[in-house]
Design a protein around this nucleic acid. Structure first.
Length: 286
DNA sequence: CTCATGACCTGTGCGC
DNA sequence: TGCGCACAGGTCATGA
């Protein structure tokens, strides 16, 4: 589930659930999600114990939870990560990997991750911008996001436009769903060379990506009342608002032609064959 | 430097 | 019923 809007929903949920609360115990139930904490699981638990959470932050799909006395808990949800805030009396959800217990005896925080591509680590001095996140570009919700600079860099990429949109060092937060949605709205084929986009087209596809993520966040916000976000994608937003993603064989909402699914970058791309035709082959000089 | 590819994991649903 | 395979919303290391 987690692209920018979903991660932002989680960030807001964490703000409500853990800000101002002090950790008294950390249980590492599986080592893999703390693999990037190089000092090991026991050190991870020891370092966090006794710390109090401040306001959670986000860049792109990365989350970090600063502590009031410095450092931060760095988190990435990967493909299947969730944070859950549950009363301590309730059993762990399946695939619970890390459990945080708090001094106030209130709800526990549980990091749940089926595939374990995500993970947690302690980022020393990471309150402002963790070193692990420094290579990630600003996302379009960032007040300092620079559209002109991003457009200029996009138009220098010698790759297909979808690959460029997914490049978290160019613009962060966009994943497979919102890339496909932005391309459909912009009537662009995923393989259109980024450096053949007009300035207008480049601006347009970034604006559409931003717009679709903003709409998705709005949907997530209205239905959000706990930390649970459905990994299976059965939330209302996905049923109602996606134009192409996951709609293979269904009619294009603009022209009625059946949506095609094609492999691209070891994943699926969905497009309308009429609205988003394959680009003409370009023979580059030298 | 840039770009493309496969590895990293578990679980589910489908066709046979 | 059981098995094998395709597939799942991400990132990173490693090659060319």
């Amino acid at each position: 589930m987690p692209e920018l809007p979903e991660v932002e929903v989680v960030r807001r949920g964490l703000s409500t659930a853990v800000r101002g609360r002090t950790i008294t115990r950390v249980d590492v139930l599986h080592d893999r999600p703390v693999r990037r904490h190089l000092a090991g699981p026991a050190d991870f638990a020891a370092q966090l114990t006794g710390r109090r959470f401040a306001e959670p932050r986000r860049r792109g799909k990365y989350l970090w939870l600063p502590f009031e006395d410095g450092d931060a808990l760095l988190a990435h949800l990967g493909m299947s990560g969730q944070f859950r805030s549950d009363e301590a009396t309730l059993p762990d959800p399946p695939n619970t990997r890390i459990r945080f217990v708090f001094a106030d005896g209130g709800p526990e925080l549980r990091f749940v991750d089926q595939r374990m591509f995500g993970g947690l680590s302690l980022s020393p001095d990471g309150a402002e911008l963790p070193a692990e996140v420094a290579h990630i570009a600003r996302d379009p919700f960032d007040p300092e996001f620079d559209l002109d600079q991003t457009v200029a860099r996009l138009r220098r990429k010698r790759s297909g436009v979808k690959r460029a949109l997914l490049d978290q060092e160019l613009i962060s937060g966009i994943g497979n769903i919102y890339a496909d949605e932005a391309l459909w709205r912009s009537r662009l084929h995923y393989a259109k060379p980024a450096d053949r986009l007009t300035r207008k087209a480049a601006v347009g596809v970034i604006m559409e990506a931003t717009a679709v993520m903003r709409e998705a966040l709005g949907e997530g916000g209205t239905s959000f009342d706990s930390l649970y976000v459905n990994v299976n994608g059965s939330s209302g937003y996905f049923e109602r608002a996606l134009a192409v993603y996951g709609r293979e064989g269904l009619p294009c909402l603009r022209c009625g032609r059946p949506i095609k699914r094609e492999p691209f970058m070891n994943r699926s791309s969905f497009r309308c064959p009429r609205c988003q035709p394959a680009p003409r082959m370009i023979i580059r000089a030298s």
